[in-house]
């Protein structure tokens, strides 16, 4: 049975995780991909009408196509679709401002929902903005391995301790989840139940989880500290960086495109272009 449930889940949404590849986007420096996320976010916040945002969405879709991950990245939106629909609906009925034709209005207690041309445009803009941000974020995650991100941060001159902490944080997440599972299993095997309201009735049972968890975390951190020392952590003031990411021509091209996009958005905002 669990297998069937898993299959159904996979059919609805794709996994938001790094997807190895050799596309144009994959070969960009991670810093360029990071800049793409930042630039797209700024552009999205600059435009307030659906048409330019639809244009940005087309550009992001093209970026996804270049990465060879357009459909998979769209599929990652499936889990947040209900949230998106809810936000758009709220924006449609309770917009910041109303203008144009009023199609429907009501008064329900303290609430006064109104559906108008202005509210629909506002909701569409908000919906587009959220979809763009989610898509560009998904594409960043799907094209950037954690280690390449850490390497690029090292390349930017971030302190060794900070980049190590970032790398270690990801490993720790797995460790902590695994440790907790093992502790629950070990205590359950000694007839300690964690089901129902047992923990509310007898909070002292939490000690059987908290003490081993604390001991495991402390003991692991001691082991890791020793292992780091033995492997030379901190031996030199400036550690080297293996396969340090380097800016190439495609990074230059991409960053120029991003700069042009930002310039267009800023000039539009300043009124140089009349963007609907």
């Amino acid at each position: 049975m669990p297998l069937r449930r898993g299959k159904r889940r996979r059919a609805v949404g794709a996994r938001l995780a790094y997807s190895p590849g050799d596309s144009f986007v994959h070969r960009l420096d991670p810093r360029t991909r990071m800049a793409t996320v930042v630039a797209t976010t700024l552009v999205c916040l600059t435009f307030e009408t659906p048409l330019p945002l639809a244009g940005v969405l087309v550009l992001v879709a093209a970026y996804g196509w270049l990465a060879g991950l357009l459909l998979p990245s769209i599929r990652t939106l499936a889990p947040i679709l209900p949230l998106l629909v809810t936000i758009v609906a709220i924006d449609a009925f309770f917009p910041r401002e109303n203008y144009g034709t009023i199609f429907w209005s009501a008064s329900i207690g303290l609430l006064h929902p109104v559906l108008s041309t202005g509210s629909l445009l506002f909701a569409a803009s908000m919906g587009l903005r959220l979809v763009i941000l989610a898509l560009v974020g998904a594409l960043f995650v799907m094209t950037t391995s954690y280690s390449s991100l850490v390497r690029s941060l090292k390349g930017m001159g971030l302190p060794n301790s900070l980049t190590f902490a970032l790398s270690y944080a990801l490993r720790s997440t797995t460790w902590l989840a695994d440790d907790l599972r093992r502790i629950v299993e070990a205590q359950s095997a000694r007839a300690l139940s964690f089901e129902g309201r047992v923990l509310v009735r007898e909070p002292s049972r939490l000690l059987a989880l908290a003490v081993p968890m604390t001991v495991t975390v402390i003991s692991r951190s001691r082991h890791v500290t020793d292992a780091m020392q033995v492997r030379g952590y901190g031996a030199v003031a400036r550690p080297s960086c293996y396969h340090r990411p380097r800016f190439g021509r495609r990074d230059l091209l991409m960053n120029c495109a991003l700069a042009a996009l930002l310039l267009w958005a800023l000039l539009s905002r300043a009124g140089w272009f009349d963007v609907l």
């Binding site: 082991h223 890791v224 292992a227 492997r231 030379g232 952590y233 031996a235 550690p239 080297s240 293996y242």
Partner: peptide, 24 residues
């Protein structure tokens, strides 16, 4: 498990060399 603190095998193997400032 307690002495592997990188995300990939390659990162793990190169960790000590990076810390000692080795050349590429």
């Amino acid at each position: 498990d307690s002495q592997l603190f990188s995300t990939t095998v390659e990162d793990e193997v190169v960790f000590g060399l990076e810390q000692l400032g080795a050349d590429e």
